[in-house]
Simulated scan of single mutants.
Amino acid sequence: MNNNGFPFDIEKIIEDARNELEKITRKDELEYWRIKYFGRKGVFAILTSKIPELSQHLRPEAGRKINKAKNLLNELLQQKKIIVESAQTYNDTGLNYTLTGLKPDYGYFNPITLVSRDIVRIFQNLGFGVHTGPEIETDFYNFEALNMPEDHPARDMWDTFYLDAERKFLLRTHTSPVQIRVMEKLKIPFRIIAIGKTFRRDAFDASHSPVFHQVEGLMVGYDITFSNLKAVLIFFLRELFGSNVRVRFLPSYFPFTEPSAEISISCVICDGRGCQTCGFSGWIEILGAGMVHPEVFLKAGIKEKNITGFAFGAGIERIAMIKYRIDDIRQFYLNDIRFLTQFE
């Protein structure tokens, strides 16, 4: 009898059971251990049968100690059972299912997605809304409403996918049609950007793709000037490429803006000193812009004389290629995990 008046040492029983359990490596050994302690004639059955022999005041405490020990050893039994069965499976099949599994490959955001999100974030901070339009367009929205009537020579700038013999339905060649749709619906003043896919009959090579993405911007209101256009675009480009980038505006031509400008930034590769990327000029063309042509306002149903606005457009792939120094546009469409993992 131990010091507590019990005819058994429960702590010694637990210790012995633990030691025996740790040495077990096979299922039959584990079953023998279970029967020894939990069987009908096992250790705990014997201990329980001796409780009535104890004095009345010791019985509750003895029962609690036995139950606590049973619960502890049963939990250890279940843990050991998992280990032994896993080891047994490994021995039977040659596979060890307890080893940590291989980490599967998972996707990453395409640079086009990353740049698109940056653009949306910058312009939303300036109060611009985000709009979309249909990828299948009519000749009216894609050309005529943008000051390019039928047989206008400016249409040759866009190699168009027509969808019908009458050449009235087409895959949009730019996101500019969204300008017209927005001007027809929104109340002046407003400012929006539109991001989406565009389509042209281009070869699929290092610098061209028949499917690409554009961002279009439009701001319409009262007394908007070219200075507003410059301020917005300089802010946008410095947010996108860094505060040290220089921005240059040169005269250009677009049928839907007048005056029009070609906007370039100082080369981010050579910092404007001249390299192969910028053709040793120190500048990289990045987007086109200008003041909305009065004819475009008329086609959209806006006839007020004091309404002005500016518009701009840029290729998202081109921005991504410059920002991430990518030399082949095809990389964006190959879904090569080795390429995409660079943009975590």
Rank of each mutant, 00 (worst) to 15 (best):
M1W: 09
N4W: 10
N4C: 06
G5V: 07
F8D: 04
F8S: 01
I10R: 07
E15A: 09
E20A: 13
L21M: 14
L21Q: 11
R26Y: 10
R26Q: 15
D28L: 12
L30E: 07
Y32K: 14
W33K: 06
K36Q: 09
F38N: 02
G39Q: 03
R40C: 01
G42I: 08
V43W: 04
K50Y: 06
H57V: 12
L58F: 03
E61K: 15
R64Q: 11
K68G: 13
K68P: 00
A69Y: 07
A69F: 10
N74I: 05
Q79D: 13
K80W: 04
I82F: 12
Q88S: 13
T89Q: 15
T89S: 14
G94M: 00
G94S: 04
G94R: 00
T100V: 15
G101W: 00
L102C: 08
L102Y: 11
L102K: 12
I119H: 02
N125T: 13
F128T: 08
H131Y: 14
T132H: 12
T132K: 13
P134H: 05
P134C: 03
F140G: 05
F140A: 07
Y141G: 07
Y141F: 13
F143T: 10
A145V: 09
L146G: 09
L146C: 08
M157I: 14
W158E: 13
T160V: 13
D164F: 11
E166L: 13
K168P: 05
L171S: 10
T173L: 06
T175N: 12
I180C: 04
P189K: 02
G196F: 05
T198A: 14
D202Y: 10
D205F: 05
A206H: 11
Q214S: 04
E216K: 00
M219I: 10
V220G: 01
V220W: 07
G221Q: 02
N228A: 14
L229P: 00
K230D: 02
L233V: 08
L237A: 04
R238M: 11
S252H: 05
Y253P: 06
P255W: 04
P255I: 01
E258V: 11
I265C: 08
G279D: 02
F280Q: 15
F280N: 14
W283E: 05
A289F: 07
M291V: 10
V292E: 12
H293Y: 07
V296R: 03
I302Q: 02
K303Y: 12
K305I: 09
N306C: 02
T308Y: 05
G309Y: 09
A311P: 01
A314V: 09
A314P: 03
I316G: 05
E317R: 00
I322P: 03
I322L: 14
I329R: 09
R330W: 01
R330M: 05
N335P: 01
L340R: 06
